[in-house]
């Protein structure tokens, strides 16, 4: 039976059912020319996927949601009454206006650091870092020295300043005694000097925290690290940076505790 070009494509894409697969596989065993076509298609598919690994995307600007303000206990009763009044008002409004309009973005959250950090982190853990010299002096070091995370048993072993290409940025890679890998990316901010607190983010299996402060953007990322430990480390790193890299007793204790938090890295 002749196998058409469309069907061969579907075979290579894994889109045929069991009977279709068996039909093509049987024909391939008997026809070297057909096998050559499949080989070409498979190679083409692999090369297209490789060619598709392209440029660094721009930052995602998502409308940030406002954080509810902290209320003191004394105000709780007043606030509760206000909520009831507001709810009644909103219900009346909803009756008059059936199609709700989403709120306008209050501010913009910059997340380009996450993409950059993810790209370098992947290169680092796969060992595909281009064989660069990671000991040579960096052209741009926004904080002098990177944070010392030794108290959390994290050792600085890697650094890279290649992502993104059109921006000043640096990435530091730390390794723990059991293979945990933590990345810290710092880039010159594109956020207009605004400050935003650390926010949890995910990019595939990579988890992390991003925040901005004083014209700099930060991202702490790790894969397979206990979420609680990662959250602690991000908060501590933010604190260390805020205090010009000074490690006081509280910070040292917090680092030691973070190392003991949660399960081992997977």
């Amino acid at each position: 039976m002749a196998i058409g070009w469309d069907k061969l494509n579907a075979y290579v894409d894994g889109e045929l059912d069991a009977q279709g697969n068996a039909e093509v596989a049987g024909a391939l065993a008997l026809d070297p020319d057909l096998a050559a076509r499949v080989a070409s298609l498979a190679r083409l598919k692999a090369c297209v996927a490789e060619a598709g690994k392209s440029e660094m995307p721009p930052p995602l600007r998502t409308p940030a949601r406002s954080v509810p303000p902290r209320r003191s206990f004394a105000w709780a009763g007043v606030a509760g009454a206000a909520i009831v009044v507001l709810a009644v008002a909103l219900m009346s409004f909803a009756l008059l206006r059936p199609a709700p309009v989403p709120p306008a973005p209050a501010r913009v959250l910059e997340l380009s650091g996450l993409s950059a950090a993810a790209a370098i982190y992947d290169r680092w853990i796969t060992g595909n870092d281009g064989g660069g010299d990671h000991q040579r002096p960096l052209d741009w070091q926004p904080m002098g020295q990177p944070p010392d995370l030794g108290e959390a048993r994290l050792r600085l072993v890697f650094r890279d300043a290649t992502e993104p290409r059109d921006r000043q940025a640096v990435f530091y890679g730390y390794v723990g005694p059991n293979g945990c890998r933590l990345g810290l990316w710092i880039g010159r901010g594109e956020h207009g000097g605004r400050t935003s607190p650390p926010q949890a983010v995910h990019l595939g299996e990579l988890a992390g925290y991003v925040w901005t402060a004083e014209w700099l953007e930060y991202a702490v990322v790790a894969r397979g690290m206990d979420p609680e430990r990662l959250a602690s480390l991000a908060a501590i790193i933010e604190r260390i940076i805020e205090r010009d890299m000074k490690l006081d007793r509280d910070v040292r204790l917090a680092l030691q505790n973070a190392a003991r938090t949660g399960a081992a890295c997977s």
């Binding site: 440029e55 995307p57 721009p58 995602l60 600007r61 993409s115 995910h202 595939g204």
Partner: peptide, 27 residues
């Protein structure tokens, strides 16, 4: 959006054939 951001950008570049226009389109 976050997980697919680089891929969405690649698709936007394929459609627009221009990085800046792709960036606007994506936003």
């Amino acid at each position: 959006l976050l997980e697919n951001w680089p891929r969405l950008f690649g698709y936007a570049v394929t459609l627009t054939r221009d990085r800046d226009r792709a960036s606007d389109l994506l936003q």
